[in-house]
Design a binder for these strands. Structure first.
Length: 420
RNA sequence: GAGGGUGUAGCUCAGUAGGUAGAGCACUGGGUUGUGGUCCCAGUUGUCGCGGGUUCAAAUCCCGUCAUCCUCCCCA
């Protein structure tokens, strides 16, 4: 007999840690909601070709990290490795792009990448993302970035930084790309890196090895070769961010792993996660819609890693999602009392109070211990003696004080005590 | 995909001239026949990651494998 284990590289989140994950996810999503983004719930898998064409065949994500399989109908489908392609597909399929623009959507859910697991790098990851489609306005770029920033701040994160750059567009990037390739071909690089220089030269700029960095010190940078229009766009984005009070540092070597990015690209970086430092990132993707068969519409969005943001919050020692699992704990003494307390617990729950009860044959001591462990503020203790008086004992678990309360007054008394 | 570290109780970990296992925490019960968080006592929990090899004998040595962590790579 073999014991089952979770699939490789995929964490199980259990209480109480799981509550923190939910808090992170909800806090980030709330930031999007406040900025007028509407929720989309989309398939977890899509036609494989959607990602191949949308994300880019040459990317690592598509070429070696996808969970691809053939379904019973013989179709090749893939567990989504990122969110934008699926959102674009849905927007085109349902004609949202023919309504009022921009289309502002947000999503949250699981994504899958077949990578070597590592701290902060999982094969199934939870992400919150937004997409704003159809308006190429630098103010919108700034809004998207500001939404992410607001989400992080709402969690109390402080130890992150925002890196920003512009990747140009179809009018200036091809020219720059060639110039960069020329530069790279002249360098004594290893074979692996040379290959990368041919496929995606921009990514070579991001090499971490010091000796390579040295070689690249004088490499031409995209930001110095932007078309006038892209330059103008970039300057305006920065101006808006400054106006919004969002701090950023320019990183002209910032690279995004997906092919579709144009102009604005950004990444939120945190140093508390080990080798994986990106907690969220995104950018503009003009041209993606058309590439997927839609209209020529621009778009900008981000994906924020919930798992990694949680790690960042832990690294900063933030108390996220530490709320006790219940507010009131019921301790029945004997069978008759249990019958009553079960009902009392249900009534309190109906009134919006979070309540648990000592089930099983726990002794009083054990039940009180459970009450303490539950984190509840109050315990409702009752035995035959109390019920004869039509009362229960209400104990404040913080200071240990206790008093008899008539059953009719219990709800209001509990609410007062919890509010106090 | 490449390199390295680690796998012993639910958790954190002890356990080398090879002799089939321990501590703390946790959990359960009791001290307190109706009161938790402190204290005291008692008790439960192990395929020593898995498989094979060497040996009279393997948690301990060897090989493989899986998992995990770290680095490269890549990204959220």
């Amino acid at each position: 007999m073999t014991a089952f284990t979770a699939p490789r590289g995929i964490p199980d989140y259990l209480p109480p840690e799981s509550a923190a994950l939910l808090t992170v996810r909800d806090t980030l999503a709330e930031a999007a909601r406040r900025a007028g983004y509407g929720y989309v719930e989309l398939p977890v898998f899509e036609d494989t070709a959607l990602f191949a064409r949308g994300v880019g065949e040459s990317t690592d994500v598509v070429s070696k990290e996808m969970y691809t399989f053939t379904d019973r109908g013989g179709r090749s489908v893939t567990l989504r490795p990122e969110g934008t392609a699926g959102v674009m597909r849905a927007v085109i399929e349902h004609g949202l792009d023919r309504g009022q623009l921009p289309v502002k959507l947000y999503y949250t859910g699981q994504f899958f990448r077949y990578e070597r697991p590592q701290a902060g790098r999982y094969r199934q990851l939870l992400q919150v993302g937004v997409e704003a489609i159809g308006v190429d306005d630098p103010a919108l770029d700034a809004e998207v970035i500001a939404v992410a920033d607001a989400g992080y701040r709402a969690l109390g994160l402080t130890g992150y930084r925002l890196e920003l750059t512009s990747l140009g567009d179809s009018t200036c990037r091809p020219e720059y790309r060639e110039r960069l390739q020329e530069f790279l071909r002249a360098l004594p690089l290893d074979e692996e890196t040379r290959r990368r220089a041919e496929i995606n030269p921009l990514r070579v700029l991001d090499d971490k090895r010091p000796e390579v960095r040295e070689l690249l010190a004088d490499a031409p940078l995209m930001v110095d070769h932007l078309s006038p229009e892209c330059r103008e766009h970039y300057e305006e984005v920065k101006e808006h961010l400054t106006g919004l009070g969002v701090k950023f540092t320019e990183n002209p070597r910032l690279v995004r792993g997906l092919d579709y990015y144009t102009k604005t690209a950004f990444e939120f970086v945190h140093d508390g996660l080990g080798a994986q430092s990106g907690i969220g990132g995104g950018g503009r993707y003009d041209g993606l819609m058309a590439q997927l068969g839609g209209q020529e519409l621009s778009g900008i969005g981000f994906g924020l890693g919930v798992d990694r943001t949680l790690l960042a919050a832990r690294a900063e020692g933030l108390a996220v999602g530490d709320e006790a699992r219940c507010e009131v704990y019921c301790v029945p003494l004997g069978q008759a009392a249990k019958r009553q307390l079960v009902r009392i617990a249900a009534a309190l729950r109906g009134a919006g109070v979070r309540v648990d009860l000592a089930y099983g044959g726990k002794g009083l001591k054990g039940a009180m211990k459970a009450a303490g462990r539950s984190g509840a503020r109050l315990a409702v203790v009752a035995g035959d003696r109390d019920l004869e008086q039509d009362e229960v004992q209400l104990k404040d678990l913080r200071d240990g004080s206790q008093r008899a309360v008539g059953r009719a007054e219990l709800l209001t008394t509990v609410k007062e005590a919890l509010a106090g």
